[in-house]
Simulated assay, not measured.
Amino acid sequence: MANRSAEGAAAQETETPFGALSVLVVEDESFTRMVLAKMLGTLGVQAVHQAADGESALAAVAAHAPDLVLCDVEMQPMDGFGFVRALRASPESRSRSLPVVFMSGRVDSDREAAARASGAALVLAKPVTRPACASRCPMG
């Protein structure tokens, strides 16, 4: 029985790659934000912060100092590209290097090139799944 407990604990550790990271979810649709927050919890994220657009995301980055940002591309009044440009222009070195992962309903070479040019690490197709996030998101 002790071996099963140890194996279970090891399996749980490998299933929670985010460890004690803090993640900011930037998404204009509240239901999608809630689903992403719950999914991140299943990955072991200790703190999930939320913002509805790029402007509120900048304030959330300053307030919570997340380790990773999952950001929708198409939002108003400030979209994901505007958010990342503002983040990278910040005088704070932490903001300039903060990993940002875009989420988009459209993922093609043009969108990926624009994401990288703006300073985002990568683009995940929406709806974002737990396996895609666990395998592709930078873990800090």
Rank of each mutant, 00 (worst) to 15 (best):
N3S: 13
E7F: 14
E7D: 13
T14F: 14
T14L: 15
P17C: 10
P17T: 08
F18A: 03
V23I: 10
V25T: 03
M34G: 04
M34A: 14
L36D: 09
L40C: 02
G41V: 04
G41C: 08
T42P: 01
Q46E: 15
A47S: 14
E55L: 15
S56H: 12
L58P: 04
L58F: 09
A60Y: 06
A60R: 01
A65G: 01
P66H: 09
D67N: 15
D67S: 13
L68K: 09
D79K: 04
D79R: 01
G80I: 10
F81M: 04
G82E: 12
V84D: 00
R85W: 00
R85C: 04
A89P: 01
S90E: 11
P91Y: 07
E92V: 13
S93F: 02
R94Q: 14
S95E: 14
L98I: 12
P99N: 10
P99F: 09
F102T: 05
R106E: 00
R106H: 11
V107A: 05
S109V: 07
D110V: 10
A115Q: 03
S118A: 15
S118R: 03
A121C: 00
A121N: 00
L122Q: 12
V123P: 01
V123H: 02
V128N: 03
T129M: 06
P131S: 07
C133H: 05
C133V: 12
A134L: 06
R136N: 10
M139Q: 14
